[in-house]
């Protein structure tokens, strides 16, 4: 019961936030002038009239990082439930061994990526 009550309040905060933004935008609409001209509606970009469209070719080197991130983040999620119980009496050194196995896996993964050179661009 308490659990749902807690998140109900969080939900209310979200409602308050949405209301705040709505009121701000609505009030802004009443306060500000609205005089669109073609020049004004042109994309600003860097101050010079834009050449071509907004979607340009660029070399995206970030995708390796996103793979790495997904792998690590999924692992890291498991840390949180484990963190609350690992020192409970009765486990002794077992959880500690588990932890080092876990850290070992992460470290080996990171070292592999490092060795492969994906963490350096130059």
């Amino acid at each position: 019961m308490d659990y749902f009550h807690g998140y109900a309040v969080v939900g209310l905060v979200a409602v308050v936030g949405v209301l705040f933004v709505t009121v701000a935008f609505a009030a802004g609409r009443l306060l500000r002038p609205e005089v669109p001209t073609p020049e004004k509606l042109l994309t600003y970009e860097c101050g010079v009239d834009p050449v071509g469209e907004g979607w340009a070719h660029t070399q995206i080197r970030y995708y390796v990082y996103s793979y790495l991130y997904v792998i690590f983040a999924v692992d890291a999620i498991f840390l949180f439930p484990w963190a609350t119980v690992f020192a409970a009496p009765g486990f002794g050194g077992a959880t500690l061994v588990e932890m080092f196995v876990f850290l070992g896996f992460l470290a080996v993964g990171l070292l592999y990526a490092w060795k492969k050179g994906v963490l350096e661009w130059t």
Binding site: R32, E34, T43
Partner: peptide
């Protein structure tokens, strides 16, 4: 900020 015009570029 509140009284400045809110410009949305035509291409956006």
């Amino acid at each position: 900020f509140a009284q400045k015009e809110d410009v949305v570029p035509a291409d956006a």
